[in-house]
Simulated assay, not measured.
Amino acid sequence: MTDSMQVFDRAAVRAHRQRSAAQWTKHDFLKREVADRLLDRLRDVNRSFASALDLGCHGGTLAERLPEIGKVERLVQCDAAPAMARRAAAGGWPALAADEEALPFAPRSFDLALSVLSLHWVNDLPGTLIQLRTCLRPDGLLLAALLGGESLHELRVALMEAELEVTGGLSPRISPFAEVRDCGGLLQRAGFALPVVDQDEITVTYADPFALLRELRGMAETNAVQERPKGMARRALFARMAEIYAQRFARPDGRIPITFQVLYLTAWAPHDSQQQPLRPGSAKARLAEALDTVERPAGDKADPSIGKIHRGKSPKTAS
């Protein structure tokens, strides 16, 4: 890992989770919601798993729900914060403290790897995905959920505008997140087969921006960017941020929304039994016939009256 890849202060990530462990159940609503949605995807998989890993388990939220699925015989939980690991272990499944960037597991240790809202704090995401693929047995399944690039965009806008007004400059106050268009490539780069990436948007409302900031602190999702401002922020900055947030985004009832974009990664450790792409040129039917159109040599201009397609953006839905 090179210095250029050190986006996040991992010591700060651990410290935030350590601090949040004691009051975790008061602020774990997003983890619970995303865990439920991830387990819905596991329900759709027509097989059982002898051993599974929960990477970034926090307080054991996923493990509480896993018995309802009935597909996993043994589970090992893992979190970067010792206090979170101890809390998770109290639920019955074993747990250990270990960094997501340096997994302590032997190759082919698990049939299933799960991760809920933890991997967006990893500096070397491709490296962690490679480690996860290595610790899976052939034909083992990865199911992971992490925050995507549209997360917290309302707070990001309000903070940027406020900081420009108050200080005349900008600093990294909200973490960068992965983009959905990049995740499939990252899975392939890590050696996974049959990668699928989909997304949800979850919108939550709060009485005011300061209630949101308190919630993010309780969730251990506060800023851990390496280049974040280290000193105390000026009171005027957050006062102005709250004004801008309310002006730009407040709903008719006065409450302010915040958006969490959640990316779900599904992929398999390679195995000979998996579906393989056909050899180029082996197709038995022509695509042009299936589309009822005219095939033209490469470089020829198509008749604009043939095969006309109307493109448009489909609206996003919020949960």
Results as ranks from 00 to 15, higher is better:
N123K: 06
D124K: 09
L125V: 15
P126L: 10
P126I: 12
T128N: 02
L129K: 10
L129V: 11
Q131H: 08
L132D: 05
R133A: 11
T134E: 15
C135L: 15
R137Y: 04
R137F: 05
D139V: 07
L141P: 03
A144K: 02
A145W: 13
A145S: 14
G149V: 08
E150V: 00
E150D: 15
L152C: 06
L152W: 08
L155F: 14
A158S: 10
A158E: 01
L159P: 01
E165S: 04
E165L: 07
E165D: 06
G169M: 06
S171I: 00
R173G: 08
S175H: 05
S175V: 07
P176D: 15
F177E: 11
E179V: 00
V180S: 10
R181N: 10
G184E: 14
L186P: 15
L186A: 13
R189M: 14
R189I: 07
G191M: 10
V197W: 14
Q199G: 01
D200Q: 14
T203K: 12
V204W: 12
T205R: 13
T205S: 13
Y206Q: 09
A207D: 03
A211F: 00
L213V: 12
R214M: 06
L216K: 00
R217W: 03
G218W: 12
M219P: 15
E221F: 10
T222C: 02
T222N: 04
N223L: 04
A224W: 02
V225N: 02
V225W: 03
V225Q: 08
E227Q: 14
P229H: 01
R234D: 15
A239G: 09
A239E: 11
R240P: 03
M241C: 14
M241R: 02
A246S: 14
A246F: 03
A246Y: 09
F249M: 01
F249P: 02
A250C: 11
D253I: 15
